[in-house]
């Protein structure tokens, strides 16, 4: 369709075109496109099983899309083969692109054998090759910002869910990613811990970070997003600016969905 975006400022930071993903015979994504410019916050919503996580995980190739194009800052992910045999053509490229896509998981997935500080330093040192002293200083500054400086020497298992998720966000931020990917970052948390994590994510959005956010927190999505994308059974059923689509939903299904989730 479009040429690989040039380096001009108007190019999309992340561009996904006509993404398909099947697990065996089950087609979970049936052609999903999305693009995010620098500073955009795109929220992905939809009922359980609609393919939100799968879409997010295809972007950083934790799942391999069966078809479709992914571009990060204009650089297209190279594949070889097709369908279920379609695999990345260049492992180095995959690793590099992943390091530029900061992923935050629903279940935190902090490395249990490392302290919070080591978790936040690890990617910088091992993947980006940042000298240790510099990585430590950067990690400490980020932990300070997410309110975990005092917990830096602690192991993850000794923290609350909200603290673990903030540490996981710090780990992703430390990579200075071009785009951050959040997969239901607050769904595994006790209700009273949701607020502290959303506050951190809101702070990142306000700093102008580009992010894709899968969430069930409708109010939050409405507040922070520049675009909301509603997925239904592997297709985009509705999309638009939050104020627009939440007040004037076009599709009946989306209208029913926001009714039910309020």
């Amino acid at each position: 369709m479009t040429d690989p975006a040039s380096a001009s400022g108007t190019a999309a930071t992340l561009q996904v075109e006509d993404l398909h993903k099947s697990f065996g015979d089950l087609e979970v994504l049936k052609g999903v496109s999305m693009s995010a410019r620098e500073g955009d916050v795109v929220s992905l919503i939809g009922s359980s099983g609609s393919g939100k996580s799968t879409f997010l995980r295809c972007i950083n190739l934790l799942e391999l899309p069966t078809a479709g194009v992914i571009r990060l800052s204009g650089e297209e992910v190279k594949f070889k083969g097709s369908g279920p045999n379609r695999v990345p053509a260049d492992k180095k490229q995959v690793a590099r692109l992943r390091s530029q896509l900061g992923m935050v998981f629903q279940s935190f997935n902090l490395w249990q054998h490392m302290t919070v500080l080591q978790n936040v330093m690890e990617g910088q040192v091992q993947v980006l090759g940042v000298p240790k002293a510099e990585a430590r200083a950067r990690a400490e500054a980020i932990l300070e910002r997410v309110g975990l400086y005092d917990k830096r020497a602690q192991y993850p298992a000794f923290l609350s869910g909200g603290q673990q998720q903030r540490a996981a966000i710090a780990r992703a931020v430390a990579m200075e990613p071009k785009v951050m990917l959040f997969d239901e970052p607050t769904s595994a948390l006790d209700p009273e811990l949701v607020g502290e994590v959303l506050k951190v994510i809101r702070g990142l959005a306000e700093e102008g970070r580009t992010m894709i956010l899968v969430t069930h927190e409708m109010r939050f999505a409405r507040d922070v997003s520049s675009e909301v994308v509603y997925l239904h059974e592997g297709r985009v059923e509705e999309r638009g600016a939050p104020d627009e689509i939440f007040t004037h939903p076009k599709s009946e299904r989306f209208a029913a969905f926001i009714q039910n989730t309020h």
């Binding site: 950083n60 934790l62 492992k91 690793a95 590099r96 692109l97 992943r98 390091s99 530029q100 896509l101 992923m103 998981f105 279940s107 935190f108 997935n109 902090l110 490395w111 249990q112 690890e122 990617g123 091992q126 993947v127 780990r171 992703a172 990579m175």
Partner: peptide, 15 residues
Amino acid sequence: VPFGQIEAARAIGMS
């Protein structure tokens, strides 16, 4: 080893 730990390593770009 919880699979999430391994996924986090891949997701951050480790070889």
